[in-house]
Design a protein around this nucleic acid. Structure first.
Lengths: 123, 123
DNA sequence: TAAAGTAGGTACTTAAAAGTAACCACGATG
DNA sequence: CATCGTGGTTACTTTTAAGTACCTACTTTA
């Protein structure tokens, strides 16, 4: 955030902001989307399916989501190691909210396509 | 986002991400919250009630929200000028979603307070 | 006459986030 | 013997966002 943000900053008292902060990053919702729709995935699979994300950022996001208990990390110390990520119960709790958000987003998108882009159909 | 992001980037096809991008910033949800609970507010009032935000960032956020049609800007060219911001219909559409999100956030917060902070009650 | 309030805009600086590239151990494969 | 794939980590660089400070033009107030 900012240098002016202390730990007692008033904004940290807002739990809504705290949850939005988790979903914020460029790739976060895509990771959750893949786990939601494709089921549990290994690190490499996830990286390939999210497409374009670097290992560093994927690791960061997964650690963050794991700490927030939205995803579960299963580490098997085989050789080569096998690490599987899956949606934790808390991650599933977000489903209704994300579905509602998706409905709104789709509706707005189609509304905007009609009003702000008359170049396609007109003429 | 990143230098690798072109205009045809796959992520821009995700409408959920587009909406989350609106709510993301450090202050955005607070601005919407004030407008939601306190009703229409003038620029100066908003700045005072959001507490700590700079005029620059508040302007940025309001322009962004206005462009997304979440808030409505009413400009009266009096002297001094009187600019009033209010929640647009689209802003109100987010209410159920934000309420659901708030429920989840509050629940998680109280759950976390019990498990990860036994220093308060224990001993 | 000088300050304060109105609603911002502009320039500059700083801090955080993201990206890139190289590297690790280990075993199997070619 | 060198490379690939596993699941990352580390160091370095670049980009972006946010913050700070100062400015406008006009009126009212002290």
């Amino acid at each position: 955030m900012s240098s002016a943000l202390k730990s007692d900053d008033v904004r940290y008292e807002c739990p809504v902001d705290a949850v939005l902060r988790l979903l914020m990053g460029p790739w976060t919702t895509y990771i959750l989307y893949v786990l939601r729709t494709q089921g549990p995935r290994r690190f490499g699979e996830l990286k390939r399916e999210v497409g374009g994300i670097s290992a560093k950022v994927l690791t960061e996001r997964l650690r963050m989501l794991e700490e927030a208990r939205l995803v579960h990390r299963d580490y098997q110390a085989t050789i080569p190691p096998q690490v599987t990520y899956s949606l934790a119960p808390r991650g599933a709790e977000l489903n209704p909210m994300l579905d509602a958000l998706k409905d709104i987003a789709l509706r707005w998108q189609s509304e905007d396509a009609q009003t702000s882009r008359p170049r396609q159909a007109a003429e």
